[in-house]
C-alpha cells in the first residue's frame, strides 16, 4: 500500500484523520450526538492550537494571549448577529481583518521584547481584549451574548446542522494543517525557524527578522480567529469567559502535549487534552488535581510530547533494522 505512511507516527496520524473524516455518521449511527459535540469542540480548539504552534513551536514566540483571537473571531459572529446581520462572509471577513489589525499593532510592540517579557506583554494585550468585552454592556458584558442563528453561507457551504458545522471545522482544520506545512517548508518558514534558533545570525545573513516574525504573528492570529468564528457558531453563545488568559495557557499546554514545532502534534495534543479533561471529570470531582499532576509529569519527562514519543519509536525501529 504505497499511499499509506510507512512510519509509526505517520500511520497514527493517518488513522486519526481516517477516524475523524466520517465521525458525524458514525456517531449518528451509534446514536451518540454528545460525542460529536465533544469532537467538534476539540477540533475547533485544534485550529487555534495549530495557529499557536506556528508562532510558538516553529517561531519560538511564546504567546500567552492567543485566546484573544478566539474572542475576536467569536465576537465577529456575535456582534453582527446582535444587529441581525447573519451574512457568513461578513463574519468571516470581520474575524480575519480585525484579528489581523489587532495582531499587527500589538505584535509590532510585543515583538520588540523577548522571552518572559514577550509572554507577559502578549498576556497583557489579551487581557485588554478580555476586559473590553467584559465592559461592553450592550453585548451582554460578563453575561455573554446569545447567537440565535448560525452564520449564513450559500446552500452548498451551509453551517446549519451539526454535521455541516463539523465539516466546516474539519475542513478548516485540514486547511490550517496543510497551510502551516507549506509555510514552514517555504522560504518564509526557513526564516522563522532560523530566527527561533539564532536571530542574530539571521540578521547578519540579511534577514530583517522582525518583519518576518511580525507577519508570522499576524498569520497565526488570523488562523486563530477562524477557530473563534467557528466556536461562536458552535456554542451559539459567547462570553468573555472563553478568552481569559487561562484559556491561552491551556492552548500552550495543548501545543506542548502534542509536540511543539511538529505538524500533527497540535491536533493530537488538543484531542488528548480535551478527552482527558472530559473523562477525568466524569471519574472524580478532584480531576483538576490528577490532570495537573499529569501535565507536570509530561512537561518534566515527556520531552517532545506525543509526536516526540512516536518519532522516538520510529527511530528505535529504524535502529533495529
Amino acid at each position: 500500500m504505497g499511499w499509506f505512511p510507512q512510519t509509526i507516527s505517520g500511520r497514527v496520524y493517518a488513522v486519526i484523520l481516517l477516524i475523524l473524516a466520517p465521525a458525524p455518521f458514525v456517531f449518528e449511527w451509534i446514536n451518540q450526538p454528545f460525542y460529536l459535540d465533544l469532537l467538534s469542540r476539540a477540533l475547533i480548539l485544534a485550529i487555534a492550537v495549530v495557529s499557536l504552534n506556528l508562532i510558538l513551536g516553529f517561531g519560538g514566540m511564546v504567546s500567552l494571549g492567543h485566546a484573544a483571537y478566539i474572542g475576536i473571531g467569536a465576537y465577529s459572529v456575535g456582534i453582527p448577529s446582535y444587529y441581525d446581520f447573519y451574512n457568513g462572509w461578513l463574519h468571516l471577513g470581520l474575524a480575519l481583518s480585525v484579528s489581523a489589525a489587532f495582531a499587527f499593532v500589538t505584535g509590532a510592540i510585543s515583538l520588540r521584547t523577548k522571552g518572559v517579557y514577550f509572554i507577559m506583554i502578549t498576556m497583557a494585550f489579551s487581557q485588554m481584549v478580555y476586559f473590553t468585552f467584559l465592559s461592553l454592556e450592550e453585548y451582554g458584558a460578563d453575561d455573554g451574548l446569545v447567537i440565535y442563528s448560525r452564520s449564513e453561507f450559500p446552500e452548498w457551504l451551509t453551517m446549519d446542522g451539526s454535521t455541516s458545522l463539523y465539516y466546516w471545522i474539519f475542513g478548516l482544520l485540514l486547511l490550517s494543517l496543510f497551510f502551516v506545512r507549506r509555510l514552514v517548508h517555504a522560504r518564509f518558514g526557513r526564516v522563522i525557524v532560523g530566527s527561533k534558533f539564532n536571530d542574530q545570525r539571521m540578521q547578519a545573513l540579511g534577514f530583517d527578522t522582525y518583519r518576518y516574525r511580525l507577519v508570522c504573528y499576524v498569520i497565526s492570529a488570523m488562523m486563530c480567529s477562524l477557530a473563534g468564528m467557528l466556536l461562536g457558531n458552535f456554542t451559539g453563545f459567547i462570553s468573555p469567559d472563553m478568552i481569559g488568559w487561562a484559556r491561552s495557557g491551556e492552548l500552550i499546554f495543548m501545543v506542548i502535549i502534542g509536540g511543539a514545532g511538529t505538524f500533527f502534534g497540535p491536533l493530537v495534543g488538543t484531542i488528548a487534552f480535551v478527552l482527558l479533561e472530559e473523562f477525568l471529570s466524569l471519574i472524580t470531582v478532584y480531576w483538576h488535581l490528577i490532570f495537573g499532576v499529569m501535565l507536570v509529569a509530561l512537561v518534566l519527562f515527556g520531552k517532545g510530547g506525543i509526536d516526540g514519543w512516536l518519532s522516538l519509536m520510529d527511530r528505535k525501529r529504524a535502529d533495529n533494522g
Binding site: R182, H185, A186, R187, F188, G189, R190, V191, F207, Y212
Partner: peptide, 9 residues
C-alpha cells in the same frame, strides 16, 4: 523571503 508556498528543498 515573503514566499509562503514553494518548498525550499
Amino acid at each position: 523571503s515573503f514566499r509562503f508556498w514553494s518548498p525550499v528543498s
